[in-house]
């Protein structure tokens, strides 16, 4: 699994002390869990996610995947960004193909069809991104991440740009895929209800310097009732942890 060991990340700042986005963060992912990273903006949660993805490197410390130090993006770790980030010049199917270009053509087609099927976008396979709704575009991005068959799926506030109805539907969809998929999810969010509904563990981060403040375990069995007492209680606990 993925181990974060004393990871720090500093950013140089013109004419001042460097910004400490992450300060000696330790974290170990568990098999097949949903881990939420919550915190106010500037707490380092997105920086941590980018380091887990291999897009950014720690200034010190290391991230190890099954014992090997992570030195860059790897097929085992998939990423869904806040925006769908589809290439506007490629139809949905070809956007997803980008993630499996290293495979033989026949495997590509087979996997793309399976991925489209999983996110329910078969009918939109040939559509241009400009024709997709926000929710559909994000599902296409999800398919692009899943088509590589990652063991860890990183999600950077993937629902934050969606309207509340689409957001709930897509959250349930992700939960369903996770239930069947056997992969681990790391979800960055500032929406405490989202964390309370989806996560097995919530890592509460605080900024300046970015550190893990508290880890909240959630035992509430799924499916969880969004308006239920337990979800609301966890929400309150997280809110207190964030600000208290």
């Amino acid at each position: 699994m993925l181990n974060v060991e004393a990871v720090s990340r500093r950013f140089a700042r013109d004419g001042g002390a460097p910004v400490v986005a992450l300060d000696r963060v330790d974290l170990t992912l568990r098999e097949h869990e949903i881990l939420a990273l919550v915190g106010t903006s500037g707490c380092g949660k997105s920086t941590l996610l980018r380091i887990l993805s291999g897009l950014d490197r720690p200034t010190s410390g290391r991230v190890a995947l099954d014992g090997r130090v992570l030195s860059g993006p790897t097929p085992e770790i998939g990423m869904v960004f806040q925006e769908p980030r589809l290439m506007p010049w490629l139809p949905v199917r070809e956007n997803i193909r980008l993630a499996v270009l290293d495979q033989p053509r026949a495997i590509q087609d087979q996997r793309i069809t399976a991925a489209l099927d999983r996110v329910g976008l078969n009918d939109a396979a040939e559509a241009w991104p400009k024709a997709l709704s926000g929710g559909m575009a994000q599902r296409a991005a999800l398919a692009r991440a899943l088509v590589r068959q990652p063991s860890i799926l990183l999600m950077d506030e993937p629902f934050s740009a969606l309207d509340s109805f689409t957001k709930t539907a897509l959250q349930d969809h992700v939960l369903d895929l996770w239930g069947r998929g056997g992969f681990t999810v790391v979800l960055v969010t500032h929406d405490l209800e989202e964390a309370a509904v989806l996560a097995d563990r919530v890592v509460v981060m605080r900024g300046d310097p970015g550190r893990v403040h508290q880890v909240v375990e959630i035992d509430d069995p799924r499916p969880r009732d969004r308006t239920g007492a337990e979800v609301q209680r966890i929400k309150r606990e997280l809110a207190v942890s964030l600000e208290g």
Binding site: M79, F81, R85, M87, L98, A99
Partner: peptide, 21 residues
């Protein structure tokens, strides 16, 4: 830059990045 990151995360070669992005 955001689309180039998509290319990086999906392991696209330099040539593929030029061609598709």
């Amino acid at each position: 830059r955001k689309l180039v990151e998509v290319a990086r995360i999906n392991g696209l070669s330099l040539w593929a990045t030029v061609r598709y992005v």
